[in-house]
Design a protein around this nucleic acid. Structure first.
Lengths: 282, 282
DNA sequence: AATATAATGTAGTTTACTTACAAAAAGTGG
DNA sequence: CCACTTTTTGTAAGTAAACTACATTATATT
């Protein structure tokens, strides 16, 4: 069932002057679904039957139906953004905490999606698909993200490593070539070791993809390809948790795309990996 | 503004017999927001003024307002469930893939939230807070979740370990006491090694908290405390990715709660850990 | 300019919503 | 257990909203 605006667009040619006046009112009004037909018609400066003819033309059976449709569409677009008061309190029981994390997460996913540059993402996908070796660098909690990422990309058959130890990172970084790709992960963007290691990797000629939450950091500025995960601006303790989940989803996206664009070799490799894992169960 | 069901619950004591009949109809009807007052009252077998008195009591200014509220709440709950066409296609570019993962994720979070048993969660929190040692067991991708969890709980100062190697898991499991707590993670719930290790841990007297997506599995049935992450029933390749994110959010919830209910020692420990990590940056 | 066609409005009808008040039911104190 | 109060429910009438039939005006066509 098409929504209100789609219906309007479909019939745009066939709309009369007074019908357009009515639509204008419906679009400008904050709560159009609370207007009576009388109010709407006088606001628009037209007669009531004109309103009737309009909603008929748009395919609604009654004025009530139009109002219900408007109400539902307003509900669907509105509240998800207005994360009114999601801060987690000590008194919140587990179910409330989980719900609030969920709300923060979906708002962070939405913000990230809006800032996401498709071309950059696809460029990253291309580089990864062609890479001779793929390195995930991360420390602390970002280290577990690195490992998760490596675990996934391992399945496409190439050489993929998660490196969490700064010394190991440094050694790998100093021996890279133009064919290598580094994915460096840091929530803060200011982890000293990671900055150094990315610097070394770049000097060795590797492509550096940076995943971080903050664009105004040393690490972000060094990126060949920068993938930003936007979280809320607050300094809640839960921000780090949420941004980590978004980063994982971002890496999932990269992986899904690499498999999609990959040649038949990659797809064979993925299937082989799945079989291998299945043998470990049952 | 509380939603319809919250309002009903708040006034539950004060509801008369005919008011309950009306509510019953509103809950059972598929599209209650399209009913006229006349239809609703005759369906419920009461008079129209009884309907008026009910919505007044619930805090709505007019029957229209009640209908609009119901329509909006149906819109908010409805479509996110019916994940109409979230399946990721090979032709989807990175931004679309990310968006679909986001949609699947929030629907999975919602489903998990509904199945979530607060008491079980809080019981788990209590056990963890008092545990002498806390073990995270997981293999493969669930292993990285285990590590992530251990990384977090490490900060509260106790003995916390992520064990991914089945041999190590077996050794630890055979030397546990009643004071120990095991958190075992498995997406499928049928990973042979994990099942064996949980069995050993239980025989040693440890409390076993199981995090899995499937309630009808050997592992789920062994749980002292079972925490289910509901994903969609489909066998999409993305299900595992999504359920892993939900599992992480679940562990975040446990952690947040443990810190909240924890005594001053735990809070001191968390602050110490934060200082320690900060020293590693800048 | 005459006629056809489309657009809009007037006035009235029907339906939906609301109110005032009365009847019935359920408690309460003597 | 009866007179009285309070609560619950319904009847009937009023008001406002939604809809319809038809008249009027505007626009286009020949």
């Amino acid at each position: 069932m098409p929504n209100f605006l789609e219906r309007v667009n479909e019939k745009r040619e066939a709309l009369t002057a007074s019908e357009q006046k009515i639509i204008e009112q419906l679009e400008k009004h904050e709560k159009p679904f609370l207007l009576s037909m009388n109010e709407l018609s006088s606001l628009s400066g037209v007669s009531e039957p004109s309103v009737v003819r309009l909603y008929r033309k748009l395919g609604y059976a009654s004025y009530q139906e139009l109002k219900v449709a408007l109400a539902q569409e307003h509900a669907a677009n509105g509240p998800s953004y207005s994360s009114d008061n999601n801060e987690i309190k000590e008194s919140d029981k587990a179910d409330v905490v989980f719900e609030k994390i969920g709300d923060q997460l979906s708002s962070a996913m939405m913000m990230t999606k809006e800032k996401l540059n498709v071309d950059q993402m696809e460029e990253a996908v291309g580089k990864i698909a062609k890479a001779a070796r793929l390195f995930f660098f991360g420390q602390g909690l970002s280290g577990t993200i690195a490992e998760d990422g490596a675990h996934k990309f391992m399945r496409i058959g190439g050489t993929t490593l998660a490196v969490k130890d700064p010394h190991y990172q440094a050694i790998y970084a100093s021996h890279m070539t133009e064919e290598d790709v580094v994915i460096a992960i840091s929530h803060s963007g200011e982890t000293v070791n990671i900055i150094e290691v990315v610097d070394m990797s770049k000097k060795s000629g590797a492509t550096c993809i940076i995943i971080t939450s903050n664009p105004n950091t040393t690490l972000a500025k060094m990126a060949d390809i920068l993938l930003l995960t936007q979280a809320q601006e607050t300094e809640n303790r839960s921000d780090a948790m949420v941004s980590r989940l978004v980063q994982l989803a971002l890496i999932d996206t990269l992986y899904t795309r690499v498999v999609s664009v990959g040649d038949s070799d990659i797809k064979k490799a993925v299937n082989l990996s799945r079989l291998a894992v299945t043998r470990m169960k049952k």
